[in-house]
């Protein structure tokens, strides 16, 4: 009996150890950014490509107010309502005190400076594919933006989704290395893929999610209902999006559809971001979209 009890404890300890290995926050190695220095001018491009302001600027901010990343926008979901935090340059309320590595851990690993998991409403499942140099450049640009003392609000997420450690399991299941659209891509298509799959995080809305909130990469960009909201995210695979490359570029530049309707909702913000990229980047995204497998 005592031997059985000992075996039980051994199994229990092993189980906890394995669970901890899976669930623990997994930051980058301390020397991951060795030799990199940030270029704020390049970082500005990363900032717009990544769409940081669309979520982290104050509610309904326009023009210059978009650069005050005080947070507060609310994002309802089946798991609760998330509130975008302050990522302005304020050392207390924002991320003014963050190192390059802190930002890289946040974006590439979904891990906070205090070594806690972020909720994947912060699209690190996409940002994890970004080049670390781009993140370092972004850090340099963010440091040039205004500080705002507005404190971040707590997320309104109930049990059991508020157990941060369980997000280690989410990451184990859904954080994937490598590109979704693979194969023989031209240099332009690869650039578009980088912008769409990593920085632009298009899939976070345009790819349907499973019951646990993971992106169904087998139905990449096939669209789906807006969580806890009205309407649908449109299918932007070639099965539904039959626009020419020129049409797509025009849409990402001015927001005009081929019928000269214009982008609405959150996509209007995305277009404003894309419009700040060089024209050949928008052409690259259009080229990439043509290579996405058609999905009904």
């Amino acid at each position: 009996m005592r031997r059985l009890l000992r075996l039980f404890y051994i199994v229990l300890i092993l189980g906890v150890a394995v669970a901890w290995l899976v669930l623990r926050p997994n930051p980058l190695p301390d020397d991951a950014l060795a030799g990199m220095t940030g270029d704020p001018a390049r970082g500005e491009l990363i900032f717009w490509a990544g769409g940081c302001a669309s979520c982290h600027a104050g509610d309904k901010a326009t023009e210059d107010a978009k650069l005050v990343l005080k947070g507060g926008q609310r994002f309802p979901s089946p798991f609760g309502t998330f509130v975008a935090p302050n990522i302005s340059n304020d050392p207390e309320a924002g991320i003014g005190a963050w190192s390059d590595l802190d930002l890289a851990n946040a974006m590439a690993r979904g891990v906070s400076p205090k070594r806690r998991h972020y909720f994947p409403v912060f699209p690190y499942a996409s940002y994890a594919k970004a080049d670390l140099q781009d993140i370092v450049d972004l850090r340099a640009y963010l440091a040039t933006l205004p500080a705002d003392p507005t404190p971040s609000e707590a997320h309104e997420v109930g049990f059991p989704f508020n157990i941060r450690l369980s997000l280690g399991g989410w990451k184990f299941l859904f954080l994937k290395d490598g590109w979704v659209v693979d194969g023989d891509l031209t240099v332009e298509e690869q650039r578009g893929r980088y912008l769409a799959e990593a920085l632009g995080h298009c899939g976070e809305c345009h790819t349907p999610r499973n019951a646990l909130g993971g992106m169904e990469t087998g139905r990449w960009f096939a669209g789906g209902p807006v969580p806890a909201g009205r309407g649908n995210f449109p299918n932007i695979t070639p099965a539904k999006l039959d626009w020419s490359n020129t049409d797509i570029v025009e849409y990402l530049t001015s927001g005009f559809t081929p019928e000269y309707d214009s982008a609405g909702g959150h996509m209007a913000l995305v277009v404003q971001n894309m419009a700040r990229l060089p024209a050949n980047d928008r052409a690259a995204i259009a080229a990439y979209l043509k290579r996405v497998p058609p999905s009904e």
């Binding site: 309904k60 326009t62 995210f233 001015s254 214009s262 909702g265």
Partner: peptide, 21 residues
């Protein structure tokens, strides 16, 4: 002039129009 024009259309559509899809 197309970009600012489209942006001005989107300005209203972003906040005032129900989702179109």
């Amino acid at each position: 002039a197309m970009g600012p024009l489209g942006k001005s259309c989107g300005g209203c559509h972003e906040v005032a129009r129900i989702p179109q899809n």
